[in-house]
Write a protein that binds this DNA or RNA. Structure first.
Lengths: 357, 357
DNA sequence: GCTGGTGGTCGAATCGATTCGACCATGACG
DNA sequence: CGTCATGGTCGAATCGATTCGACCACCAGC
């Protein structure tokens, strides 16, 4: 209180050495007599000096040791979704292994949080960036901060070579194609689709052959495109405002509570799919005897037990880890290339042949 | 590439003014002719100068604008639990309203992450601190960083006035007492308890009258104590390794799959309780006719529909928001006092009178 | 005995901004 | 017409560290 926090200069004075020598005692970069070091450290504890002030180091080195992570949409929603959280977990691990800090930046859809303009960071990871023209990405690149986008579409376009922005994602398109082909092999012809949000600007989806080409969110678009790749035109596409069980449930009602209901429902996320399963149960439909339900992501859904959802498993933690490692490289000024991780079909108990007749 | 990033000095030179004037143009602190400001800003855009380097500002001001948030246990687990995430959401909002950054620091149980030693922060929020002797809290206070603990026990002891560490929590103890009294009023006499982890060092719980006094995690201890306050000694207490549905489910089996099973099961979290409900269903027991189940937290459990869990609702977002606001105050050097938020009994459809006989 | 290398220490410059005090010119007021 | 207040600008000090180059002393080798 009475005294301001001691600085390296105070410690040096107390130990009777120069500031530069005191610095050496802490950093260990450069030759120093062990007796001298001990004297400095002793002086430090005497003054309750807790080590070099990071602010000074940061200014000198030009690095903050911090990576910003921009999670799209409200924080609460991102957190509620195991898909985000498992990815963030991998990301956090990769960063903390390199002793980089993870600055969590929540961002309302389409907004550019002031934090992004004024906070020091060596690199940033943006989840679900709307391409290189995304306001968030622009604000960062203008500041010269390299950006890793996760599940965005930067990097889809190899026409931007030396760019400091790079994308890490999964084979969304191949995933849904694989899944839908499997369902058609089982005999399904009439499909309902429960879609993830299409973009910041929401509108209700229509059954539409080229729906997949219009979604603003790249991963939604890719997953829809995969369905088309499998040669399927869904009878009905319902867009949901977020990947949450309750939205899946109401979409499920919308799709299944009609006489000409489809025999298979493909949801673009597991949370949505599990909502559809609940809806089916509530309507007295047996899964998979009356209707097949499939999801995407491959997360664990303990409350669905004993059912196991048919889904497309993506390596969530690996995706996060890779994004983290890319951010580490970019923060260090080294170049990085994007990645597309493979996905895997995971057959559960919620899909089967369509009902006879 | 060829040129290093421009600095304020470069901009000043380009605009033909002094550095101090250029600074004024950006900060607006102090008188400046609007013509001059425009010249400076024009020069800035010409040089692609994106605004003052935060590192310089931070050193000068002595503030980093960052609040560290230490989430106990693995990140993944914290994220998976809506209780943590809703709290974090409130926290993030409070911080971002003051333009403070949220540095997420994952911490294995009992470890002190290196980030805490070397990263600049103006204040820290520690979730589930094991009292003022917690290694994490010690490391922070040694550095002179004020600490807000959430659901810890700092501040339980009013013998530490003027301390820079303060606690924000809820009335755990009153909550379970209220709940259990209600159950005894309904006629229940034989209770099973599914407990949250007791502390970093885990061991299986025994039916034990003073179990509540031994738990290392303060909130677990308080909730157990509340049960005793209601005059109930549980037949069986099962400790779980984490607040997850699957752990609740296996604990539920353990408690309910026996001839002398209790008529009511109190779980110390809603996720655990919903696992118990699943276990009961799997064992062919009707809830609440055969067994009553209650939880704690008051989160939404869409997949339990149409059942609604009887629980103790705590104001999660408010708790986070309060912790955030406390951190803001402490970061600004102003004193703060701790808070204990009230909870509320929320009767659902999972509790009723015990079965006759 | 002289030279060259080296371990150890120090002084001073540097990182990029903010801010205090000085300074100048202009306009108002007595 | 002189003085005072003030708007506007600048120079220099400061924040807390790191690091380069200089310097000194000591020892080994020739």
């Amino acid at each position: 209180m009475t005294h301001p926090r001691p600085t390296l200069a105070d410690v040096a004075a107390e130990a009777g050495v120069s500031v530069s020598t005191a610095s050496l005692a802490f950093s260990g970069a450069g030759p120093i007599a062990s007796a001298t070091r001990d004297r400095v450290l002793a002086a430090a504890t005497r003054l309750a000096y807790a080590g070099p002030n990071p602010l000074g180091q940061q200014l000198r080195s030009g690095r903050s040791g911090i990576v910003g992570v921009v999670v799209g949409d409200r924080l609460r929603r991102s957190f509620r979704d195991p898909v985000s959280t498992q990815m963030l977990d991998g990301l956090a691990q990769a960063l903390s292994e390199q002793s980089l800090g993870l600055l969590l930046v929540p961002s309302e859809a389409g907004e550019v949080p002031p934090l992004l303009r004024h906070t020091a960071m060596d690199a940033a990871v943006v989840v679900l960036a709307n391409g290189p023209d995304d306001g968030v990405v622009l604000a960062l690149t203008r500041r010269g901060i390299p950006v890793v986008s996760v599940e965005g579409e930067i990097g889809d376009d190899p026409a931007r070579p030396g760019s400091a922005t790079v994308n890490v994602g999964i084979d969304d398109r191949g995933g849904t194609e694989l899944l839908v082909r499997e369902l058609t092999l089982l005999g399904h012809r009439r499909f309902g689709v429960v879609s993830l949000p299409w973009g910041h600007d929401r509108r209700l989806g229509q059954p539409d052959a080229d729906a997949g080409t219009r979604a603003g969110y790249a991963h939604t678009r890719r997953r829809l495109a995969g369905i088309a790749d499998a040669g399927v035109v869904p009878d009905l596409v319902v867009e949901t405002p977020a990947s949450l069980v309750e939205h899946g449930r109401s979409a499920g009602h919308q799709i299944l509570d009609r006489p000409d209901r489809p025999t298979a429902v493909v949801a673009l996320s597991d949370l949505l799919a599990s909502g559809v399963v609940l809806a089916a149960r509530e309507l007295g439909l047996r899964v998979p005897q009356d209707v097949s339900v499939a999801g995407f992501d491959g997360i664990e859904l303990p409350w669905l037990a004993p059912d196991v959802l048919t889904s497309v498993r993506q390596p969530l933690a690996d995706k996060g880890r890779l994004a983290g490692e890319a951010a580490v490289e970019l923060a260090a000024g080294r170049p990085v290339t994007g990645t597309v991780l493979p996905v895997e079909l995971q057959l559960g108990t919620t899909t089967g042949p369509p009902p006879a007749g």
